[in-house]
Amino acid sequence: MEADAQVTQLEQALIHQAESLAREQRERAESGKARILNEASEKIRLAEEREVMAAKAEAEKQVRHQAQAAETRLAAELDRLRWALTEATLSSVRMAFQELVDDDERYLAVLEQWLAAATLALPAGDLVAEVRPADKPRLVSGWEQIAARVAPGRKLELGVLEQISEGGIRVRLADNRARLDQTFEARESRLADELARVAMERLFASAPDLGTLVHG
């Protein structure tokens, strides 16, 4: 009986030991499984993050390219519109100036105004006022009176412009030391930048009055 009890105790001890080993193996297996699953999940998460970041970077790149292309197209369109508006403005100004030239009373008054401003701006000395050949006969009859009003005490000769002009007047010292060009072309050239600015403003709002180009 004693031998049987010892055998039974040994068997139970072996069973407990086997159960303990099995439990430890199971726990290690579960721990390993959890670790593997965690590592796999982390790798998947990192891979997904990389894919998302790569997709985001590519999307941002595409957006930048599209924005740059849109800006280039917009700049080109604005340049085209600015040119068209500038040309339209110049055309309108030329028409207004031509109407002024055709009106004797208004045109001669403007020429006298520009002439008076030039005589004040130019240094002392004899003066020559040059106008279009077509305008000289319009001024000759009253030239002495005009000269007396705008340049008292100074010699003021009436001449003609050598270059073709829409109208206006150019005043210079007789010795050519200085001059003030108030022909339409000179005034238009001086106001070219202003016309471009006005054209851009008219893309978004109403343009300022351009009457100074015609009337000073």
Rank of each mutant, 00 (worst) to 15 (best):
111 L>Y: 05
104 D>Y: 12
113 Q>W: 06
167 G>I: 08
150 V>N: 04
140 V>N: 13
140 V>W: 12
136 K>L: 10
117 A>H: 13
141 S>D: 15
160 V>D: 03
119 T>Y: 08
149 R>Y: 06
138 R>S: 09
108 L>W: 11
107 Y>E: 04
134 A>T: 08
141 S>K: 09
142 G>V: 14
168 G>N: 02
171 V>P: 00
114 W>C: 02
137 P>T: 09
128 V>W: 01
158 L>T: 02
140 V>S: 15
122 L>S: 09
140 V>C: 09
136 K>I: 06
151 A>C: 09
157 E>C: 13
102 D>S: 14
148 A>G: 13
160 V>I: 11
162 E>P: 14
164 I>W: 02
134 A>Y: 11
155 K>W: 12
161 L>E: 10
147 A>P: 05
126 D>I: 03
125 G>E: 06
166 E>Q: 09
101 V>H: 08
148 A>Q: 14
167 G>Q: 04
119 T>H: 05
156 L>E: 03
138 R>H: 01
139 L>C: 06
129 A>K: 02
141 S>H: 12
145 Q>V: 07
148 A>P: 07
129 A>M: 02
161 L>D: 03
166 E>P: 00
117 A>C: 07
169 I>L: 06
126 D>R: 07
168 G>D: 02
111 L>H: 00
121 A>I: 05
166 E>M: 10
128 V>D: 12
117 A>Q: 14
170 R>T: 05
132 R>L: 13
142 G>R: 14
147 A>R: 03
140 V>E: 15
165 S>A: 15
133 P>A: 14
135 D>E: 08
111 L>D: 01
158 L>R: 02
145 Q>K: 06
135 D>G: 05
128 V>Q: 09
116 A>L: 07
154 R>W: 02
102 D>T: 15
152 P>L: 10
103 D>E: 08
126 D>A: 11
141 S>F: 14
122 L>V: 07
124 A>V: 14
146 I>K: 10
143 W>K: 15
118 A>P: 00
140 V>T: 08
151 A>N: 01
127 L>V: 04
129 A>I: 09
150 V>Q: 00
154 R>L: 13
120 L>T: 08
115 L>M: 03
131 V>H: 00
121 A>M: 06
143 W>Q: 10
137 P>R: 10
134 A>F: 11
139 L>K: 06
135 D>W: 09
104 D>F: 09
104 D>L: 06
168 G>E: 05
108 L>K: 00
172 R>K: 13
118 A>L: 01
145 Q>C: 05
168 G>C: 01
118 A>D: 04
161 L>G: 01
155 K>G: 10
143 W>E: 03
103 D>I: 05
108 L>G: 03
140 V>D: 14
140 V>K: 15
